[in-house]
């Protein structure tokens, strides 16, 4: 009897679990721009102008497009990035270029942003603007849209890895785990990850629809689903055993 109830419970559980997996729907082209060379845009910081090619000649880069007025994802996104980078403990032979894709942002705005994260004196981080926003975001195939109602950009959270030759080698879209970031860092330093998932269609976050779980929960959910049969079989057999023991005792 116990096992029947368990079986029923599992049957009821399955549809609700599997609908969680529906989030996995994805768009193709997330790897768009991979192995393309970046345009040699000029980056403006409060300390002056520098060519992008000068930067990547010196060391590989992680590019992170943001805008300072962002009321939502940019802030947790940068905080997560900072936290995960320190967690990674990787050698600091690469730099993070946080650049604004909002024409209204000034180098001063970006410096304040850096200050906010206590990164203005960290040589691994560069905060700046560019006068070639369109060329750069096009090369990165970065998706953003101005939303008049909210006075905000709806945009994806993108990290683009650029190797020392100026080629985009890997893109991560959405909030990243430190494992994902590890992949990115390894790849820009010349490492090789044999495969990667395409980004999902729901990664075009509006700043108000941000769900930090999305993108990270799916693999663990998958593992959970794969563990259910073994756990379920164990429970069913134990249940039957308990019922059989009771019956044996009654018979005695």
């Amino acid at each position: 009897m116990f096992s029947r109830i368990l079986a029923a419970a599992i049957l009821i559980l399955i549809p609700s679990l599997s609908t969680l997996g529906n989030e996995a729907e994805s768009v193709m082209g997330g790897e768009s721009g991979i192995y393309q060379r970046l345009p040699d845009a000029t980056i403006h910081t409060t300390e002056g102008a520098v060519a992008l090619s000068t930067l990547y000649d010196q060391s590989p880069l992680i590019l992170a497009p943001v805008f300072t007025r962002c009321a939502g994802i940019c802030s947790p996104f940068l905080a997560t990035l900072k936290g995960n980078l320190s967690k990674l403990n990787a050698p600091a032979d690469f730099r993070v270029l946080v650049f604004s894709f909002d024409p209204e942002d000034t180098p001063e705005d970006m410096r304040e942003m850096a200050q906010h994260y206590e990164l203005e004196n960290d040589s691994q981080w560069i905060f700046g603007t560019t006068d070639q926003i369109e060329a750069l975001t096009d090369a990165l195939r970065f998706q953003s849209k101005w939303n008049e109602a909210t006075r905000q950009f709806d945009h994806e959270a993108l990290l683009a890895g650029v190797n020392a030759q100026g080629y985009i080698v890997l893109k991560l879209i959405g909030m990243q785990s430190s494992t994902d970031l590890g992949r990115l860092v390894s790849e820009i330093r010349g490492g090789f990850q044999v495969a990667f998932p395409l980004p999902k269609s729901d990664t075009l976050f509006t700043c108000f629809r941000w769900d930090p779980v999305t993108g990270k929960a799916r693999p663990s959910l998958g593992l959970l689903i794969m563990a259910i049969p073994t756990i379920g079989a164990g429970l069913m057999v134990t249940g039957i055993s308990a019922a059989a023991r009771r019956r044996r005792k009654r018979a005695e």
């Binding site: 193709m28 082209g29 393309q36 030759q165 090789f192």
Partner: peptide, 29 residues
């Protein structure tokens, strides 16, 4: 294998019923 090399060329392949679309550039489905 070939993990420590920079490939000379990259080919993007999208398989579909019943052909392969191939390009040196990434493309949408």
């Amino acid at each position: 294998r070939f993990t420590d090399v920079v490939p000379e060329k990259t080919v993007h392949v999208t398989a579909m019923q019943y052909t392969y679309m191939m390009s040196y550039d990434a493309f949408k489905p």
